[in-house]
Design a protein around this nucleic acid. Sequence first.
DNA 1: TATAATTCCTCTAGCTACTAGAGCTTCAAG
DNA 2: CTTGAAGCTCTAGTAGCTAGAGGAATTATA
Lengths: 136, 136
Amino acid sequence: MFSIGQLSKRTGVKIPTIRYYEQMGLIDEPGRSEGNQRRYTKDGLSRLSFIRHSRDLGFTIEDIRGLLDLSQHPEEPCNDAHSIAAQHLREVQSKITKLRRLERELKRITKCDAGNMATCAVIETLADHGLCETEH
Amino acid sequence: MFSIGQLSKRTGVKIPTIRYYEQMGLIDEPGRSEGNQRRYTKDGLSRLSFIRHSRDLGFTIEDIRGLLDLSQHPEEPCNDAHSIAAQHLREVQSKITKLRRLERELKRITKCDAGNMATCAVIETLADHGLCETEH
DNA sequence: TATAATTCCTCTAGCTACTAGAGCTTCAAG
DNA sequence: CTTGAAGCTCTAGTAGCTAGAGGAATTATA
């Protein structure tokens, strides 16, 4: 049996976040001590680790809800789990693409070495969209 | 003089967002028609374009507040504008790095072709952090 | 066993940057 | 002068937490 603090230390999930997940229905309401404090089992620990790990990989709460459901049915085919992960991969890739475009643009405008605002490439570019090299 | 709708069309910023920026103090309260509707000048238009463009480049509202302030002082040196942009560039680059790690991990786990949940790499990886290839 | 330090409880509100909707008023065209 | 589009204010909701108030329970030390 773990207290919420111990669970937090073992999983790296902050205490208020654990309570938040409980509220969102991602984890079951655990048992309570006589004094009404939460007491977790190993099952609770592994479920929370699953959630933590999924969040690290950037899955949304709703994705995780689905993945958790799916993981409860070991005999079923795992197409659904795959499509959630594959969809997420596409989102990640599209974010990367966008950020790389931003990076290029920011690199370009921060290269400016004008002395003052009036001729500063940063300010000038922001003021005038026409100076951008790429669409965004 | 533009109505809020015209301003919205010219800048691509949605109407409620324009009002939101006003509330946040990013743009000045514009004049009003006799019937209390907002009326914008060219100055308002260029300020909003500046904001729009900055948001496209991923600057936060607070960053933009700073950049707008700086752009009002054309005679001053532009070191501050640069450091805001350079800092933002670093943040973008760090996001890219993280996302690339995620991408690698997601690619790996979605390659799984197990038939069912019990042996599915997606579920298994999420359940057991030890199976990850990289830290995240 | 008494007390002190720590942890835990619930509840509410705040963060970013918007977006949506209700219910009402004004504007512009015909 | 009517009608439909556009505008007004205000409130609340989005994701995923985080912070703080005010109080109760648990654990460690004396």
